[in-house]
Design a protein around this nucleic acid. Structure first.
Lengths: 207, 207
DNA sequence: TAGATTGTTAATCGATTAACAATC
DNA sequence: TAGATTGTTAATCGATTAACAATC
């Protein structure tokens, strides 16, 4: 978990600040961000200080300045590119979703058996050409959306293709190995966790 | 984050043990679980001890015993039921996915403007009847899969309908209020986070 | 018995918070 | 000036780990 949480917070600060900015604000207090997100004002200031984001001891932080600094920290602002592997239901849904606003786009999709030549104008290729495509286009990140049974094998292929990061939607936690980061999004696990927590809430109410 | 992580670990232990069991094992060491998951052996033993799951100082833990205890802890084993709100691309994909193996099923879907009467045999109703349905069927958990602009409003409707937990897929973090838990799954944020971490990896390599 | 693994304690670690002096 | 907010320090908190005695 280390500083991964902090990075996620930086991304959230950025999004939140863009929202405040679009509402016409130009200054912001650590307190405002604390209210708008689930973060203490102390932590906002600490995060900012840690990355040399400074404010004014009377007037708070200048949104534009903070955004400038965050953009610098969060890396190149060109549109990021990623590929998708697995064109089942979930894969198709992701292909049909427009992620431009979120800073990246899917440039190609892959499937052992491409159901169509393209989906939402994104070309669909057979798995065999994944490696070539990834290397030629210098793609770093891929979304894995294949069924349980194919997950582990697909992960290996994606890593061998040279991808450095994988967002895994298959219902099986995949491990992260050194050259390739894997983040798991396990929908079933999240739902079961919710059920469990709610059940506990009920029990507490009774006690 | 508190003990939420611990609960997630319990769910993962369960899944992992089921896998080991299906492979024919009947005994397991804390070390095995440590190897198979991203958890130290120490933590496995601590988690188990914390929930009175005991093993044998020579032969490790009996998988069936642990599973029995975990099932008790993780709550009723009847199939959990949830509803889905928002039948766009992502919503449809979720409706077409079979979550039975993961312990729950979607019993109904809702949309301001139902595109079809049913999807994958799951009925789709207009939003107006959400509250009635949730109350009549004692549904506790809902998946939110509407666009950004509708997210906050939809969340309110779901809470007012009586749902106690929401899994939010809209690209906007929603806050958790006391009677209703909200867990956010922000795909865009996850991807951006991956890009950022990878970029940092590169920089470290250069240094 | 000798060896291996659990169960448990104290130590460590890192992240978060509280508090307040500095200062705009 | 008086008041408010940052920047920063030390205190707190909780989760994880290391280590080892108990014991099968």
């Amino acid at each position: 978990m280390e500083q991964k949480d902090q990075m996620l917070r930086l991304l959230k600060y950025k999004r939140m600040l863009l929202q405040f900015k679009s509402m016409g604000l130009s200054k912001i207090f650590s307190n405002n961000l604390s209210d708008a997100m689930d973060v203490s004002a102390s932590l906002v200031r600490r995060d900012f200080a840690h990355f040399d984001i400074t404010g004014n001891r009377r007037g708070g932080y200048t949104i534009n300045d903070v955004l400038k600094r965050l953009n610098g920290l969060l890396g190149d602002q060109r549109l990021h590119e990623a590929v998708l592997v697995g064109c089942g239901n979930l894969g198709r849904a992701l292909l049909n979703h427009d992620f431009i606003k979120e800073g990246f786009r899917l440039t190609a999709a892959f499937d052992i058996n491409p159901p169509e030549a393209e989906i939402n104008r994104i070309p669909v290729y057979p798995m065999e050409v994944l490696k070539n495509y990834v290397m030629q286009h210098h793609i770093l990140v891929g979304i894995l959306a294949v069924p349980f049974a194919a997950a582990a094998h697909t992960r290996d292929m994606m890593e061998q293709a040279g991808l450095r990061g994988i967002l895994n939607f298959a219902p099986m936690d995949l491990r992260s190995n050194s050259p390739c980061r894997v983040h798991n999004v396990n929908i079933g696990l999240e739902i079961e966790n919710l059920f469990f927590l709610i059940q506990q809430d009920e029990q507490k109410k009774i006690e």
